[in-house]
Design a protein around this nucleic acid. Structure first.
Lengths: 168, 168
DNA sequence: TAGATTGTCTAGCGGTGCTAACATCCGGTC
DNA sequence: GACCGGATGTTAGCACCGCTAGACAATCTA
């Protein structure tokens, strides 16, 4: 319930508006109650991030099932554009989530595996590295799209060109 | 002088530690003096960003002169790693800088041109889009490297693989 | 010399994350 | 049925934040 409120508020007004007081008001409790459920404010954002990663994994699987690498890329970029605040919590804001390690939460590994499964056929030996490169490229496009540091009209062209670099 | 202090403080302790009070103390003035020189806190970060973009442009030119596309990529990633706070101000934090438009500051256009000049020979027609894609890919690697969301030991392998995708 | 301008200060507003101290209810025990 | 302890909630407050109003001194201009 707290997590849902945080997500809605972040998506509506950005994370800088997600304060403990406003969150408490939204869930109709007093402020210190939040600290009974979460260690601090960042832990709430982390919970939103984990939720988002699970959702991303399913849309990636669906996208790549429908249209391979191109479907994967489009699904990724569409998710980032549709849920920018959640995406921020996942991959931009600092969290204490541990990525790419044995002790990482399973949802993180699942998301990474979803990408790797689709990228693997195009790898020349080192699938792990190509997965990281492809993911990074998508992540770069997602974040730079978001704050209009790239030409908005050419988003699909960029996605297509990235895919063609791997498939060519 | 304010800009230098902000940059040093951000690089030493992160932007969340760059407060008007600490900044004022560092330059040995009282807090309101800052607002005589800058509209607000974000404007100070923007000034740091512009400084950083100029520096990035020169290291990119030097890198690509020495080693072409590979030199460009390495120069970019090394700059981001060496000056993470400045890089944040440039491309991660929200600024009111306008990218990719006619009214953009010249330093922004120069930086983009530095990348395009090196990428262009590998473009199949649309150099502008390939430049955006390549830049996005570098940016993604830089940011995901930074908060250890990729395997630290494989940084060079990722850069090389990205370059090989264009040159192959 | 009188007045305007410039530069800097102290003080304070409303907001932030977070915590200590106190109230209140609710389930289990004699 | 009386009592007690642990949840679960509260109010109040700390130290900090960005930012601004108003007072004051120094300097420049006429």
């Amino acid at each position: 319930m707290i997590v849902r409120a945080a997500r809605e508020l972040a998506e509506a007004e950005g994370w800088e508006s997600v304060t403990t007081r406003r969150l408490a008001e939204k869930v109709d409790y007093s402020q210190p109650v939040l600290y009974g459920h979460f260690k601090n404010m960042d832990a709430i954002a982390t919970a939103v991030a984990l939720e988002g990663i699970e959702e991303l994994t399913t849309v990636l699987r669906r996208g790549s099932a429908a249209d391979g690498l191109r479907g994967l890329a489009n699904a990724y970029l569409e998710f980032a554009e549709a849920h920018p605040a959640v995406y921020d919590a996942m991959f931009v804001r600092n969290t204490d989530l541990v990525f790419g390690a044995a002790e990482s939460p399973d949802v993180l590994k699942d998301a990474f595996d979803a990408i790797r499964a689709t990228v693997e056929p195009y790898a020349d030996g080192d699938a792990e590295t190509l997965t990281e490169v492809f993911w990074s490229a998508l992540h770069g496009q997602a974040t730079l799209n978001h704050n209009t540091r790239l030409r908005p009209a050419h988003q699909q062209a960029r996605a297509d060109l990235l895919v063609s670099l791997l498939t060519a």
